[in-house]
Amino acid sequence: MAQFKKGESGNITGKPPGLKSKKTLILETFAQTIVEGGMKKFKAELNKLEGKEFITAYMTLFEYVKPKLQRTELTGLDGPVRIEVKVKQST
């Protein structure tokens, strides 16, 4: 059996980087079918919620569409960054 260096393959016509596997494509298609098939009922159930329940459900679902941003801290060379907001008064 041939020995290959790490990161090299003996199959030069192998799967290109970024190409989804057959398993991934099947799972994505399956999930899409479930979502599309149940969307009408899901919307009806979501519309029954009110107040805090609706907000909680909406925000929970929203994280699957737009992940939370990581918190970042801005620092200057000698400590925290000082931000000044100047508002120009119109005359």
Rank of each mutant, 00 (worst) to 15 (best):
I12L: 13
T60N: 09
N11F: 11
T60P: 00
E36G: 05
K23H: 11
E53L: 04
G76R: 03
S9R: 03
G38Y: 04
P16M: 11
E63D: 10
F42K: 03
Q70D: 14
E36R: 14
K66H: 03
L74D: 07
P16H: 05
F4P: 00
E53V: 02
N47M: 07
F42W: 13
L46M: 15
G7Q: 03
T29S: 09
K22H: 08
A31V: 10
V35H: 02
T13F: 12
G79N: 03
D78N: 14
E8D: 11
A44G: 10
L74W: 05
I12T: 13
K23R: 15
K22Y: 10
L61V: 03
T33G: 01
G7P: 06
V65T: 08
N47L: 10
Q89V: 12
G7H: 05
E8V: 02
A2V: 14
G37Y: 06
M39S: 09
K23L: 13
K41G: 07
S9P: 02
T75S: 08
Q3T: 15
G37I: 00
M1T: 10
T56P: 00
G79Q: 00
L74V: 08
S21Y: 13
K66Y: 05
V85S: 12
L19C: 07
T91R: 15
V85P: 01
Q32R: 13
V81Q: 02
L25G: 07
K48P: 00
I55L: 15
K15C: 14
G18D: 08
K88T: 15
K23F: 09
V35L: 10
L74F: 05
K6R: 12
A31G: 02
K5S: 09
Y64M: 09
L61P: 01
G51Y: 06
G14L: 02
N11Y: 13
K66L: 10
K43G: 01
V35D: 01
K86E: 12
K52M: 07
A44M: 06
E50S: 09
L61C: 06
P17R: 08
I34N: 05
S9D: 06
G18Y: 02
E84A: 08
T33C: 06
E84L: 13
Q70C: 02
Q3M: 11
S21F: 07
I12Q: 12
V81Y: 00
K6E: 06
M59S: 11
L49D: 04
K6Q: 11
I26Y: 07
K48R: 14
F54R: 11
R82G: 05
T75P: 01
I12Y: 10
K20S: 15
K48M: 10
E45P: 00
Q3S: 13
K52I: 09
F54M: 03
V87W: 05
